[in-house]
Amino acid sequence: MSDFNLKAATQEYATRLGDDAVVLGHRLSEWTSNGPFLEEDIALSNVALDYIGRARMYYTYAAELAGNGKTEDDFAYTRDMREYRNLLIHELPRGDFAYTMVRQLLVDVFNTYYLPELAKSADSTLAGIAQKAIKETRYHLRRSHEWTLRLGDGTEASHQRMQRALESLWGYTHELFDADPLELQLADAGIGVHNAALRPTWLAQVSAILTEATLTVPKDDWAVRGGRVGYHTENLGHLLNDMQFLHRAYPGCQW
């Protein structure tokens, strides 16, 4: 482990977590002014804001560790698709409302178990960010849980859409529990989290909610991976194009 640079690894980890948060936050923000009704529009925008806030905290910390004068904005706006390290599930297009809610459910349950572990991190900044995020995630999960029940056990059309969303997202959930050598070493050092250990509890809770919603838990017969090494679906390119355009066209602009 002598060649393992803890500070550089922590910086990379904070960047990855920031990427997860900014990409999902951006996807959720696409519902702003497009929600099915006013309250839901506001709720999705609020959840988006929570994620973008997390991204800012993770990036600010990564920038501080980098110590080269870069800011959170450099991380969000000047890195290309191959430099982004978010897990693929976060970048998939928002789809219909059922798709957005199923993704939120899968991610919210994951965060319900992941964040309390990160809150125990030996790195006090990561722990502090996680402690804030845990409370928000409780609210997020209650909402995605309620929507899953209402739509899964709703009309035939809503049930079908939920099941279809579930089938098309399920193969992207496996990556949530992967860890490369960097993440494993950080977990061993008490800074990161052993994600793989979270899958049984995640699966149990997700299965219970899906069953209650009369939905079928999909089979584990396919998996897509690559986000943590920078191999993305084409969707991230389109998202970054939208998100980064202004900053790239008018560097450092303010209003």
């Binding site: 936050g25 804001l49 997390r54 800012r56 995020a133």
Partner: peptide, 8 residues
């Protein structure tokens, strides 16, 4: 300290 992570 911020109230919520995304407190604008």
């Amino acid at each position: 300290t911020p109230t919520y992570s995304g407190c604008p």
